[in-house]
Simulated scan of single mutants.
Amino acid sequence: MTTMRAIGLMSGTSMDGIDIAALETDGETVTTRGPTRFAPYEAAFRRRLEAALETAKSIVDRRDRPGDLADLEREITRRHVQAVRDFLAAVGEEWRSPSVVGFHGQTVLHRPGLGVTVQLGDGALLADELAVPVVHDMRANDMLRGGQGAPLVPAYHAALARSLPDAFVAQLPMVFVNIGGISNITYVPRDGDPIAFDTGPGNTLIDQWVSREAGVPFDAGGAIASEGSVVRSVVARYLDNAFFAKEGPKSLDRNDFNLDPAEGLELADGSRTLAAVSAEAILKSVEHLPEMPKLWIVCGGGRKNARIVDDLRAGAERMRASVAVAEDAGLDGDATEAEAWAFLAARSLRGLPLTFPTTTGCKEPATGGVLNKPKGAR
């Protein structure tokens, strides 16, 4: 099958900026992982996005844009336009004419129980401005078919796992862990479809905690947590949430967990305890897997928090498994989700499934995405 060069764009639940990645793929295999870039949001714009989460709570019809959400959607899109233009200006000639762009947008509401998911981003505007076909709105079709609409990265994780060096492929079954605002895992078996679900809060509670208590956007490297101790009673309160007992597929909204159980903790103890919550929620996911994984590969911003990774390693060792951060396997842990959106755009163009009953709970494997062609294009 002919390969194409695709660009993926991801602005995740951490709301810190836009990840951009290029990929050569036919939508089934990963031929070449190309250049990547990050376009950060300034603090004032992050605050606008955080405010949008509150505004979006009133949405019933996913097409609604109450308050200033319509203006914010245009602003988000234009920021993506500029981010891609800057990216294309910086990369080599071979990557400057992509066949398609996969556009995630910014999730402001995800309520799978109500069949509602909202990602702000105008795919048609992005296509017109870039003069490149754009695939966006990749979650909706899955939800129409009974799925959770998340996570969508597992199709890419499964392809990526089989593109790794032989020493890693030999460790199937393996689990890819993505620690963003919300953490999710993909279990890649030796044969068959991947299994995936959200595992719990990743960075979001830690970010909220240190922002409120210390006025910083995140705990860089887990430095604040390194000064504190785990308060086990608080960890237990978080893990007692009914979400963890539910079988997958299952997914979370950024607002499904809050800081209430951590109230009253000192800054460092709170950060350290919330790091433990993130790690232990991920490890708890083995209760819902068919076989104990041999290897956990950690991607996303949370892999940079040394306390989360240390806790994951300690827990994996008790299960006779090992933990590798993405770079140990030759991957770019910051770009995996953006790469996934490039991969999913290619799959969408070919009508291949983006989701599976084992990843989102859809009734049957489902393709998805809306193709936006630039004005004047056939």
Rank of each mutant, 00 (worst) to 15 (best):
V169E: 08
I195Y: 12
L160I: 10
V177C: 06
G146E: 12
G180R: 02
P151F: 13
Q208H: 13
D198V: 01
A155Q: 09
A170L: 06
P173F: 11
L205V: 11
R190Y: 05
G149Y: 11
P189H: 08
P165F: 08
L152A: 12
P189Q: 07
I185T: 02
G192R: 12
A170R: 15
V177K: 00
A159E: 07
A158P: 08
D198S: 03
A196P: 03
A159M: 05
D191Y: 13
D207G: 03
S183P: 00
T204D: 00
R212I: 09
L205N: 06
Y187N: 04
V177T: 01
D193H: 10
P154N: 11
S211D: 11
T186I: 02
V175F: 05
P173C: 09
G202M: 05
G149F: 12
T186G: 03
E213H: 14
V210A: 04
G200C: 07
L205K: 09
D166H: 08
R145V: 07
P173S: 12
A159Q: 04
G181L: 02
Q208V: 01
F197N: 05
V216C: 03
A161I: 09
L172M: 10
V175P: 01
V216Y: 02
G180C: 03
F197H: 06
P165W: 07
T204R: 02
R162I: 03
R212S: 15
V188F: 07
S183C: 00
S163W: 07
T204Y: 00
P194Y: 08
P151N: 14
D191S: 14
G147T: 12
Q208G: 13
H157Y: 11
H157M: 11
T199A: 01
F168A: 09
N178W: 04
D207A: 03
V210E: 02
I206M: 13
I206Q: 03
I206L: 12
Y156A: 06
G192A: 10
R162T: 10
Y187T: 08
I179A: 02
R212M: 13
L172Q: 08
R212T: 15
V169T: 13
N184D: 07
A196N: 05
A167S: 14
D193E: 15
L160A: 08
A150K: 10
F176W: 05
L205P: 06
V175D: 00
P165A: 10
D191M: 10
R190H: 12
T199K: 05
E213L: 14
N184Y: 05
A196K: 06
F197L: 06
I182K: 03
